[in-house]
Design a binder for these strands. Structure first.
Length: 512
RNA sequence: GCACCGCUAGCUCAACUGGCAGAGCAGCUGACUCUUAAUCAGCGGGUUGUAGGUUCAAGUCCUACGCGGUGUACCA
């Protein structure tokens, strides 16, 4: 008795409708319904409700019930109300579980009585969670249903759900992903695809004796790639820190230490432009393997992606959510940059080809060269214009110009070219691989040059990482390395933009 | 960064050359014991992103700002 009084008193404090007079009508109405429940001594947000079955469990147990059949079996279910059809003395509601399973509730005057039926009609809104206990039946139209004996609210929703049959605006989908997940099954599919792909990737690495490591995301030096970093500050050490742009330098330290095959899947942060294929924070996969070269790494990446694809789609031929067919099967094309470009433009182009020859080709193609361009930059631009659009399937573009990849190892036989490839899938640069530079002297020269650029104010240039050079001086085995944007892989598997593959992409705050 | 387009009810969208701000769903009231985007009748709901300006009159024209989208530049 005493406890009940305390509980009612405590509830009374919260019966008040918020001061906000500006509440939209529909929210005000829902607040009032909540208050009415509390004033009746009922709970709008009970700690627990009876639940013997999930909706899909009910469906699984009674898959083929004939129309107008009663089972005699009583279940308790609880889920969100998605549709309501209130007729006079028999009300229908469609419940939906998180996994997308739906089940109909029937609330009839016969079973629940007049008061409970009236409450149902006046208190339950679309979006509320309700809990109901009753008999599993099939309606006359054959819809699997629970004929309710007792029901209660499991959680009162104060905000109305959006219209179920019109697509939410993209902005709302991104900003209120929780609503997107409630309303759109494809949002749920995407949310589940990511961990599925991750698990498959980890399994594939494990099968190849790769070790998963986690390296610093807060870094003392800016290094591992050329990109603008985010900066932050450590109070404890009173130093400036960088959010990492790449894990590369730490993964190579691992290989120096004898962790011969390592990978990391984690977040990178780049303080650069954001668009449909770039997010300021994105998931990066990097892996390094000793005694492998760039061709070995290309084969490994292809196999990894194919294994992930099968895990996610069941086949290497699969459909995007929009129905477009994709094919990631077989060997993938390997295109060497200079020969492919030479063939496309009908002029023999080599690393020795001077700018005087390259510039007119750019003019013809409508490419506007900039003063700072080195010859290799012309070649890359021409390649993107003439050769890239002709790709039909996943393609490795190999043997980049030396002068645009200063941190990369020279090709073993072709002068002026480096052992590097980029993997293109559907026109997106999805990954990049290298035969890694392990000569500490050359590495020092090149990082030193980078640090001079950084000192001159190039915000993308790396700082000199003495500890990394010290590690290399202890000797690193020959190795290959790969970096792949994990979100890019999900884009290839789903056909969606990067902001759909990330549950909560960075958005500017709303101001009101 | 730059250029262009958009922002109207809870949601999705209308509103011609400036002239009373509307629909569908959702909501409220009533009817209906087999509905399933239920149906029928009636009703309410708006500081048109924000702040200024032009005008007898601004959702509409002008300026600035905010947020978003598309293209473009750098990048995975």
């Amino acid at each position: 008795m005493g406890r009940t009084l305390v509980r009612l008193a405590r509830m009374a404090e919260h019966v008040v409708i918020p001061e906000d007079d500006d509440l939209p009508e529909q929210m005000r109405v829902r607040h009032e319904k909540r208050v009415r429940l509390l004033e009746d001594g009922r709970d709008a947000y009970p700690v627990t409700v009876p639940r013997t079955h999930t909706l899909s469990e009910v469906r699984a147990e009674w898959p083929d019930l004939a129309p107008d059949t009663a089972t005699g079996a009583t279940v308790s279910v609880s889920a969100r109300v998605m549709f309501v059809r209130n007729t006079g003395k028999l009300c229908f509601a469609t419940l939906r579980d998180g996994d997308g399973a739906e089940l109909q509730l029937m609330v009839s005057l016969d079973r629940v009585g007049e008061a409970s039926l009236a409450d149902w009609k006046s208190l339950v809104d679309i979006g509320d969670f309700v809990a109901a206990t009753g008999e599993v039946i099939a309606s006359r139209r054959g819809e699997l249903s629970v004929m309710v004996d007792v029901w209660q609210l499991a959680s009162k929703a104060l905000r109305p759900l959006p219209v179920a049959h019109k697509p939410l605006s993209e902005d709302t989908r991104v900003r209120q992903r929780y609503v997107d997940l409630i309303m759109r099954p494809d949002a749920q599919r995407m949310a589940r695809m990511r961990p599925q792909a991750l698990a498959a990737l980890r399994a594939s690495f494990a099968a190849r004796n790769y070790l998963e490591v986690e390296t610093p995301m807060l870094q003392v030096l800016h290094g591992g790639a050329t990109a603008r970093p985010f900066t932050t500050h450590s109070n404890a050490y009173d130093i400036q820190l960088y959010l990492r742009i790449a894990p590369e330098l730490f993964l190579k330290r691992c290989v120096v230490g004898g962790l011969d095959r390592v990978f990391e899947i984690n977040r990178n942060f780049r303080n650069e432009g954001a668009d449909s294929s770039h997010s300021p924070e994105f998931a990066m996969l990097e892996f390094y393997e000793s005694y492998a070269d760039y061709r070995d790494m290309a084969r490994t990446l292809r196999e990894l992606i194919q294994e992930v694809t099968v895990a996610v789609h069941g086949s290497l031929q699969f459909e995007w959510l929009d129905g477009t067919m994709q094919d990631l099967s077989g060997e993938w094309a390997w295109v060497s940059m200079y020969p492919a470009l030479s063939e496309a433009v009908g002029v023999d182009i080599t690393p020795e080809t001077p700018i005087d020859v390259l510039r007119p080709l750019c003019d013809v193609a409508g490419i506007k060269p900039e003063k700072t361009w080195v010859p290799g930059k012309y070649v890359e631009e021409l390649f993107e214009h003439h050769v890239l659009p002709s790709f039909t399937g996943p393609t490795f573009v190999a043997d980049f110009p030396e002068d645009t990849s200063p941190l990369t190892r020279a090709h073993r036989t072709i002068p002026g070219v480096v052992e590097k490839w980029d993997l293109y899938i559907n026109g997106y640069e999805t990954g990049t691989g290298y035969s890694e530079l392990i000569d500490p002297v050359i590495q020092r020269e090149r990082l030193h040059a980078q640090s001079l650029l950084a000192a001159k104010g190039d915000p993308e240039a790396m700082q000199l990482d003495e500890d990394f050079l010290r590690a290399l001086e202890y000797g690193a085995p020959p190795m290959g390395g790969v970096g792949m944007g994990f979100d890019r892989l999900l884009m290839a598997l789903s056909g969606l933009g990067i902001r759909e593959t990330i549950l909560f992409p960075l958005v500017k705050p709303e101001r009101r």
